[in-house]
């Protein structure tokens, strides 16, 4: 688990450190842990910035306080993570709860949020254009993405895994996939994996991971490759499908923010520290039990934070 959250920054991301006045802060500087991201064998440092504690003078935080609203990019279609409960019309889920915790910390009001719906393929561009303060949307921390946005520390450990009907003969992500139609969301890490190492599977791309479940139910595809966290959400909506085999990638969900908003990154990391604090009794664990407990194996502890400064 130590390396689990070892996250790296690419060389291009390094100037951030210089821009950030807080980086000179000598307090609480622990041993720097740098691990390669196991997911894609990428050699970038995906660790994030150390929380600043109560130093609250950054431009991004000022902007948010002035607006009195936190603008968060989310998804409405990810069951258990971010979805609209049709009965109440409210957005709910693990990601939504986390976003509310951040709003509570920065603005003392967990409802002071403007949720903006962001499609998978626009997560980076919406942040770059500053249309949102942050994206909390089952977004994996990858080196490619770190060229464009800054990430918080990891708040969830996930990985690509196959989802198939219970009657399916597919058991593993292996040569058995040859000639099978495998569905995944466009521009997702699943697409990268299938393109790189697809075992002869026929790639079917859709706009949203949930569209894959529709196609799976209709028999238009044989399997779905998606984050196990999202796959659990799909399996929760259809008892006739399940996740099989091992996770074929290891990914860490992070909260994405603008690369210039270093004060916000630090502040969010502080919120995450609080969220994880207490181990098995943490807020993180409670949220896990509420949203994911019935569908995913319970990790012993929340993922650990790794800092690069």
């Amino acid at each position: 688990m130590v390396c689990a959250c070892a996250l790296a920054l690419t060389a291009t991301a390094m100037p951030l450190l210089g821009d950030e006045p807080g980086s000179a802060d000598p307090t609480a500087r622990g041993p720097r842990v740098v691990h390669a991201n196991r997911a894609a064998d990428e050699d970038c440092d995906t660790a994030s910035l150390r929380p600043t504690g109560f130093e609250e003078s950054g431009a991004a935080l000022e902007r948010i306080r002035k607006r009195r609203k936190l603008v968060v990019g989310v998804d409405q279609n990810s069951y258990l993570w971010g979805y609209r409960d049709p009965a109440s019309g409210e957005l709910v889920g693990f990601d939504i709860a986390l976003a509310k915790a951040i709003a509570r910390d920065i603005l003392d009001d967990e409802d002071a949020i403007i949720f903006k719906m962001v499609p998978t393929d626009q997560r980076e561009s919406q942040i770059e254009a500053r249309n949102v303060d942050m994206v909390v949307r089952t977004m994996s921390i990858t080196c490619d993405r770190m060229d464009r946005v800054a990430f918080s520390t990891a708040y969830f450990e996930a990985g690509q895994q196959l989802l198939v009907p219970k009657s399916s003969g597919i058991r593993e992500y292996d040569a058995g996939l040859a000639g099978k139609r495998v569905c995944t969301a466009r521009k997702s890490t699943g697409e990268d994996k299938l393109r790189l190492d697809g075992h002869g599977a026929r790639l079917v791309l859709v706009d949203n991971q949930l569209d894959c479940l529709v196609r799976l139910q209709l028999g238009e595809v044989d399997a779905v490759l998606t984050d196990n966290a999202l796959g659990a959400g799909q399996a929760a909506q259809d008892p006739q499908v399940h996740l099989v085999g091992d996770r074929v990638t290891d990914e860490y969900y992070g909260i994405a923010m603008h690369r210039g908003d270093t004060d916000l990154v630090r502040r969010v990391n502080k919120v995450l520290e609080d969220y994880r604090a207490g181990g098995v009794d943490s807020e993180w664990m409670r949220s896990f039990d509420t949203w994911l407990g019935d569908h995913l194996e319970r990790p012993p502890l929340p993922p650990e934070a790794n800092y690069r400064d």
Partner: peptide, 20 residues
């Protein structure tokens, strides 16, 4: 109809079916 059935149960899958 599948979209409706899913929607009534509160599953986002309903919306996906409707789009499909």
């Amino acid at each position: 109809e599948t979209a409706r059935a899913n929607n009534r149960q509160g599953l986002p899958l309903g919306g996906a079916y409707l789009r499909h």
